[in-house]
Design a protein around this nucleic acid. Structure first.
Lengths: 287, 287
DNA sequence: CCTTGACTCTCAAGTCGCTCGAGACTTTAT
DNA sequence: ATAAAGTCTCGAGCGACTTGAGAGTCAAGG
């Protein structure tokens, strides 16, 4: 039996962390002196502690770990998670580099006060369409990618030329990266079978997408790194032309990424003339 | 001028984050209605906001950013930080993979209840030695690597064969990963010049390292991924042989990593017979 | 003009995984 | 007996937000 300090050295875990794990009932000392409250740990507890640390390093929260300890997780399952985690890390490297490209785009927006080169805003009328779609709130934005992949594999085969562009509708009130309430699907030309089931059990159903009489649109190139530039250009245009946003935005995927060729996405935002009344501030009077 | 929700869409920043930035005085709305408190933002504020987001993505804390906004940071400086960040990401990928190797090692410790294969604990006597060393508290463990690099470049040239093994002494009471109080240096055979100055202004000085009569030792292979296994084996050995830790641990680098060949490190822990008295619990009496 | 519903406000508390400090014990060595 | 090191509990703090309650505001439709 070791006192907490010695066990800390042996397990290579800080004392404070051991105490914390005991407090939250995740990993308790083998014995506690009932008079002094001193914690005593045995070397035979090391595997149990290591199991916890592995799961933590694999990205589980402590709550999840506490839950998982009941079901005994075989080493095989953990190995599976390990492989998964490796893949995740490689993917996250990609995402990191992508993020840096987005930073570069933002940087351009700082340099040129107004960098709208090639980002022209066009006002259009958009007719009503039939929309084969599903709506879901995703915990994180990035999870949408997998669903898009599924849809692209299944749906075009089924409908062939009757299929319009892939479109996403962002239903959140403001922007958000987490808990994204997003509707994704395809414009369809005519009456088609009313639903498609994806491998992940998600179901696409047809609904009527209303017409919009005045829609401001702007193109976006690249997966996401130019997103903020496009929306920025849109914002500047709206302000100079005295328009306000009037509804949820749509993102129409004009071209899907193929080798040598990136996304081309049209961002569509319904607009209306702005109430020219400025915020209810009286004409500034020096007090 | 946009209300917060519309500006959120344009800037691609959550509403809550905009409010938070206003609260902490980092990025304030262009106008605030004095009667209703409504925040109004202009598209011309986008570059300012983007500057903040770029710096944040480059790893600065919001406090640092607030400080940096006063000094205007040229795009060139930001570009430099961007390059730096790219390098950091690549390095952190390496670290991630290393971390996963450590996870694998931990996993082995779970599978075999007792995986001491090739990890034999040996008790030694260690004589007093002269120790050319420096002691410092590092904010994070990983920063020690740079200092080790410096030392390996400078010191061996200066002393040649009079130099013993590189050794690190971990002075922290328990284990810790941050604020590591560590003493690093070389055993030296005889009287040598009493100090060495590193490029980073750190100074190595000679001091007497006391003898230890009973020292439990175990080898560690690899940079760090087998650390927990070695300490684990040590812990099990201590418990079965009724010894307790009696002082600070040393890590002796028997072989430095060269191509094709990893670290070989001997972990040394002073020990003493354990006070066999178990925690002051009376022999369990059923109540 | 009234209602409805979407939007906004403030303020407080919660999140996660610990870390740190104060103040009071306990243990161990001298 | 005393001093130094280690341990205890409890509460607060970190960073960058998010969430929720409860109240107020705005614009469109009836």
């Amino acid at each position: 039996m070791f006192k907490i300090g010695d066990f800390s050295k042996i397990a290579q875990v800080p004392v404070s962390q051991l105490r914390y794990y005991a407090d939250i009932g995740l990993f308790e000392p083998g014995q506690v002196d009932p008079f002094t409250g001193y914690r005593y740990y045995s070397a035979s507890q090391l595997p149990a502690l290591n199991r916890i640390l592995v799961l933590k390093d694999l990205g589980m929260t402590l709550d999840q770990i506490r839950g998982a300890l009941g079901d005994q997780i075989g080493a095989e399952e953990v190995r599976g998670m390990l492989r998964l985690q490796k893949a995740k890390i490689e993917q996250s490297l990609q995402e990191e580099l992508l993020r840096l490209r987005a930073v570069e785009a933002r940087l351009r927006q700082i340099e040129d006060e107004d960098d709208s080169e090639g980002l022209e805003v066009v006002v259009k009328q958009v007719p009503a369409q039939r929309f084969l779609s599903m709506r879901e709130t995703f915990p994180i934005m990035t999870e949408t990618a997998a669903v898009v992949g599924e849809m692209m594999q299944i749906v075009p085969d089924r409908f062939g030329p009757k299929l319009g562009y892939m479109t996403a509708i962002l239903h959140n009130a403001g922007y958000s990266f987490e808990n994204v309430d997003i509707e994704m699907g395809f414009a369809v030309d005519m009456a088609v079978e009313s639903s498609v089931r994806l491998p992940s059990e998600r179901v696409l159903a047809v609904r009527e997408l209303p017409a919009v009489s005045t829609m401001a649109t702007v193109a976006r190139l690249g997966s996401y790194e130019n997103n903020c530039r496009s929306y920025g250009a849109l914002g500047r245009w709206l302000e100079t032309h005295d328009y306000a946003i009037d509804g949820v935005a749509r993102e129409v995927f004009l071209e899907m990424p193929k080798e040598g060729c990136d996304f081309v996405v049209e961002i569509q935002v319904p607009i209306k003339p702005a109430s020219t009344a400025l915020p209810s501030s009286p004409p500034a009077l020096p007090s």
